[in-house]
Design a binder for these strands. Structure first.
Lengths: 341, 341
DNA sequence: CTGAAAGCGCTAACAC
DNA sequence: GTGTTAGCGCTTTCAG
């Protein structure tokens, strides 16, 4: 217990630079220099100041600092959901990478709601973060404008949009969806079902229409859909497949908007003795670990989630550093030809 | 495109209250009143100001605002990891609940590292957040002191610690672990294995020792452990069970520090034709959806993750509002007697 | 209903 | 090496 006098009583008013300066018999500037690691402070003074800072339990006030410098170490991160397993992974990549460079992530969750997204971004903008990383592009026009007019790095991730605000890092969702559709057609499936979140999830919607396109080329189409109002988790995947089979027992294959839902459906099949893929094939999207650890590996599209996050954070940092940053990074995807489709 | 003059050129220097005030021919104070929703502004003036704000695309600077008021709408959230499925769920609960009250979550990830935790908390503290929500208590003494001396609400979540900093919401991990241990003993298992993260995960460590205590009462003990250096995911759960069985093929039951790992192990058993629970029983911890959707429901301890998050956020908000807040909320746990143990 | 003055805690830009 | 001055953009307080 190295408490100085004040014991554990919560200090009514926090200490300031001034307090430190007074105790050290130096000016505030000198303390500031020590704090910001600026050169030009005598080693002895520096040491004394550091000791006093520690003694006093002084914590700098970055509100004041940032206001004065108009620089911040906070990076705003906007994601649709944390329940959809994809986003914790990209967020981890972002947070790890930011943290290594002394930045913090301020995470906002839009719940796939464009209105929420807009107000969230507006609110975060008011903290004057160093940059923005945005996943999901349900963006309203106002959101787009805000991002375009922000004089800070903006990185869009996951889906590469048609008209990027600035930097973007991810993959062409449509291409990925097409690859999956082609694979399924080639495998000989003919009667398609789909389970996903409703149109709020624009990335998934994009993928769905891309798959339709491909199927139509061979006079096929996804005729049966089970859409939910929440990001599909395992329970919904299961429910989705039940609904679809009730609607059309002859379904060949069901595509799920994410792996988690697909896994739920697969579990259901194991339980009910439905042979996968002989009786019913299953395909997901994401390439989560979970799907690849199942007794039968899930057929899916693997994306580089952690890596996307990591690179997005790097892009923000490098852009702030004035380095040359590639505006568009396509990390691609990998079709995992598993055993479920 | 409702851009006023400046088109899409990024405005070099952001607009300020003053800009708005000048255009509106009023003082900054009047604009400020409108912005903060304070009464005492003529409806006409108010309307005009609002229009101008919109035209100008003015975004308030909360750094300045917070500095002036020493109030903030940011709540710092400290969690060990986003990969461990438990934390996205509590974080969702927190974010949802905060957002509804106009607050934002600033999420920091400690990676189960006390040193990182300390520096993270210090860094977040310097933003003068409205409150702190902390999960995981690997806390160093300095961390504890920082939190104790912060004159803002601090809520510890998940595990109820022996010496709470202030408010805490969660469950007694030890009790939960004991309940599980008793169940397994009652079921007749005698040869125990354990798979988990190493001691960095203090909650899991706590649970482990609590289980040992119970087992020792009947002259049993967990003799075989597979510890990893990362939060156990499915792949590790699988690897863990392989390692343990290699070490001791007569193992009755393996306890995993989380459901995800347990599921990985279960998948392995299905694959290898190991009968669960006849040949090998499996138990997890958390009660994730995934485990309960498997063909055989996972035996585990269910915790109220989303709810803990939700209540933690409410506690911060209510405390800030000066309402009476219960200092200790035990949300308990539920032993799920699944089919795997 | 509106405005003027002072200051939140820090740092940039100069002096010395 | 160190100090002084002037703000960053907002809000509080008090006047009118």
């Amino acid at each position: 217990m190295a408490d100085t006098e004040e014991k554990n009583r919560k200090s009514r008013t926090r200490r300031t630079l001034r307090d430190v300066a007074e105790v050290a018999h130096v000016s505030e500037m000198t303390v500031s220099r020590v704090l910001t690691g600026k050169p030009g402070v005598a080693p002895a003074t520096k040491e004394k100041i550091l000791r006093i800072i520690d003694d006093l339990g002084y914590v700098p006030n970055r509100l004041a600092g940032s206001l004065a410098t108009s620089r911040s170490n906070q990076v705003a991160v906007i994601i649709p959901s944390l329940i959809n397993n994809v986003f914790p992974e990209v967020t981890s990549g972002i947070a790890d990478s930011l943290e290594r460079a002394g930045y913090n992530a301020v995470v906002g969750i839009t719940d796939y709601n464009p209105v929420k997204e807009e107000s969230l971004i507006r609110s975060m903008m008011s903290w004057r973060p160093a940059g923005f990383i945005v996943a999901g592009h349900n963006s309203t026009t106002r959101t787009q404008n805000m991002l375009r007019n922000a004089d800070i790095p903006v990185v869009e991730i996951m889906d590469i949009p048609d008209e990027p605000v600035d930097i973007c890092i991810g993959l062409y969702q449509k291409e990925a969806a097409r690859a999956l559709a082609r694979h399924l057609v080639a495998k000989g499936y003919r009667s398609f079902g789909y389970v996903g979140l409703n149109d709020r999830d624009s990335s998934a919607a994009k993928r769905f229409s891309a798959m339709q396109e491909i199927l139509l080329q061979t006079e096929l189409s996804i005729d049966h859909r089970a859409l939910f109002d929440q990001p599909p988790d395992m329970v919904m995947g299961k429910q989705g497949v039940i609904d679809l089979l009730a609607e059309n027992p002859n379904l060949d294959v069901v595509v799920f908007s994410n792996d988690t839902a697909a896994i739920g459906a697969y579990m259901h099949c194991i339980e009910k003795g439905i042979e996968v893929p002989e009786q019913l094939a299953i395909a997901g999207f994401s390439g989560l670990n979970t799907g690849q650890t199942m007794p039968k590996k899930l057929t899916t599209i693997a994306t580089k989630r952690y890596e996307i996050g990591r690179l997005a954070a790097r892009a923000v940092i490098n852009e702030l550093d004035g380095q040359n940053v590639t505006r568009l990074v396509d990390l691609g995807f990998e079709l995992i030809e598993g055993e479920t489709a």
